[in-house]
Design a protein around this nucleic acid. Structure first.
Lengths: 341, 341
DNA sequence: TTTGGCACTCGAACCGGGTGAGTGCCAGGC
DNA sequence: GCCTGGCACTCACCCGGTTCGAGTGCCAAA
């Protein structure tokens, strides 16, 4: 195993490299950090670290830079999560407090996160699968045409047009609306299907067709919306990347536009369960275009359970403690805001 | 005034430069285009064009590139709008036909436009100011808590929470809902305020407070939503720009995130009236970050009147005829889709 | 007015030596 | 056994000089 000092050397390398963006050599290291040993010793340690695959040199006679594996060790064992300053906390709070509706919360969050971390921010809309139903409304637009409106406890609204096989009377419609609501309000989306299963049977035969159509549309909406939306911001920060631009930045921009890819990315992060923070470094990201980036993601939600994820995408050479701190703090405040509304 | 041939030379310069991205010289011009004159003559013409400010040379002993003024002349007098191939038309149609709701239409449109023009696409959500009301719904969530749902003829849905000063009975609520709808359905947003002005008076005194609250929330929603949303796509295409990246691309990405700026940009374009296509070249764009880009925008709508704009942002060195053709074609199809739904 | 010729300009590409940061290795000291 | 100072070596990078060539402007002749 690696000795304490070697780990210290690795930490110093990561910190310096993140700060300067330049390969760091043994001499510079001993000057900037109080390691208590000479450059020569550091060189020996570096040789070991390199052999173990934690650092690498871009070319002979250049300093060392951390590898993905090196960052991984750094994140797992050498660095904590840096808490934000109280000024930053206040800024977050006042920035988010002004939000008027869900869209506004999300768009403010993404801007905030981008600004705070100076990286690309990604915020997923609260998922419907874990949400509960606040209300279901049925509007009659034309004799055989309805509009279904679904309102969730996270303030999200989904609507669908429904063309019924036969016209619906006002009375059975009101009846359906009432029964539907009494059954599903406050329940989770996942539970809805079986709760409404037997509903058509209790209606007059002539209305059953319409009822079934409505129900299937409702169920469809629930399923479809599991495919979720997300918002991205701060892409201009990508230009702070390397100086070898087009090659680096292009695939990242492409990946960012593939919302499906990002959702999968965040989704995987979710496996780590609940609100836990996930850090995926470089090649740990399945998507090729993101092989030179790291993703820091965390769940957020109005209660104890995560309803969605948010995070940032940045160069593998990023300030992990600071980024993790900012991401976590923002997630918490967003959770609070959602719980209040 | 410029002779016919000089204009021809300018056109050739623009075409070549757009194609090759390199300054074009007199010799290359005569080789690629049948101008019927020698390089020396072309040189003389170029000297004149330069003096008039239509072209410039990056440095002595380099070829010429068009200036913003040159592109302007090209767009206004030398180039038409290139119609799309029938294959492209079919592609557009089949791509857009699969859309299920408004969000889907918009997101498909932006992807389509980005792909077609290989540039950054911007699509504004249909504006509410020109829209008409399809339905207003009031839901009682708690005794003194209502939800207002507003549905537009473009399929958009807006919702607002309302906390009433006093609880609302079921009967007056249904009454309000009915009267509200009978007055505003099918009317334009702009006309709504005066249509509902006298509504509180016809209610019992105890309910008037609630009615007023509902109405003011409704009017607020109408006004607020004049501040419009837009969707952007194809930012990865920015990397095809110059090779002098960070300098060029950064301010553009920043500008693209400032939705307010973009909306103003599209808004200005709107002045040119109705469905007309607008091309803003380089420094014609008020926003500094977009000084090296051109914006091609056009209105689209479900009827004869434009309800919103869409367009692309690309380098001033772009294929104007092709871009304009694509933008116009997409706008038309989107209009059709909106009219159908 | 057009054209061929010619001298001139100047960026891009290529070359070669000097510089210095950084390395690996080794022998000696604690 | 680990740390340290010393030393030779390696290369990327910088810098100045040179060449190359596309492109220009001007001029005299058709």
């Amino acid at each position: 195993m690696l000795s304490e000092r070697r780990l210290e050397v690795l930490r110093a390398i990561v910190q310096d490299y993140v700060g300067t963006e330049e390969p760091v050599g043994s001499k510079a290291l001993t000057e900037r950090h109080r390691l208590g040993v000479s450059p020569a010793t550091v060189r020996n340690d570096m040789a070991v670290l390199e052999e173990e695959g934690f650092i690498a040199q871009p070319h002979t006679s250049a300093g060392r830079i951390p590898t993905d594996k090196g960052y991984r060790l750094f994140v797992d064992r050498l660095a904590g999560v840096k808490p934000l300053s109280s000024a930053e906390r206040r800024a977050i709070q006042s920035f988010l407090d002004g939000a008027v509706d869900l869209d506004d919360v999300v768009s403010r969050t993404v801007r905030l996160l981008a600004q705070l971390t100076r990286q690309v921010a990604v915020v997923q809309y609260p998922s419907l699968t874990r949400s509960t139903v606040r209300h279901v409304e049925l509007l009659s637009l034309a004799p055989a045409r309805l509009m279904l409106v679904l309102i969730t406890d996270t303030g999200r609204v989904e609507q669908r047009m429904i063309d019924c096989p036969a016209p619906f009377g006002e009375v059975p419609l009101a009846d359906l609306r009432a029964r539907l609501n009494s059954r599903v309000v406050g329940r989770r989306f996942a539970d809805v299907p079986q709760l409404v299963q037997d509903l058509p049977e209790s209606f007059d035969p002539e209305d059953r067709g319409g009822v079934s159509t409505v129900l299937s549309t409702l169920l469809e909406t629930l399923v479809e919306e599991t495919e979720e939306r997300l918002v991205i911001g701060g892409t201009a920060n990508l230009t702070r990347f390397g100086h070898d631009f087009p090659l680096t930045i292009r695939p990242v921009l492409e990946a960012l536009e593939e919302h499906v890819v990002l959702l999968k990315l965040l989704g995987e992060a979710k496996e780590s369960g609940g609100m836990g923070m996930t850090v995926r470094i470089g090649h740990e990201n399945a998507h090729e275009g993101l092989n030179s980036t790291s993703v820091v993601a965390v769940g957020y939600g109005s209660g104890d359970e995560a309803v969605a994820k948010l995070g940032v995408v940045g160069p593998t050479r990023m300030d992990y403690p600071g980024t993790m701190g900012a991401v976590r703090a923002v997630a918490r405040y967003v959770g609070q805001i959602l719980a209040e509304s």
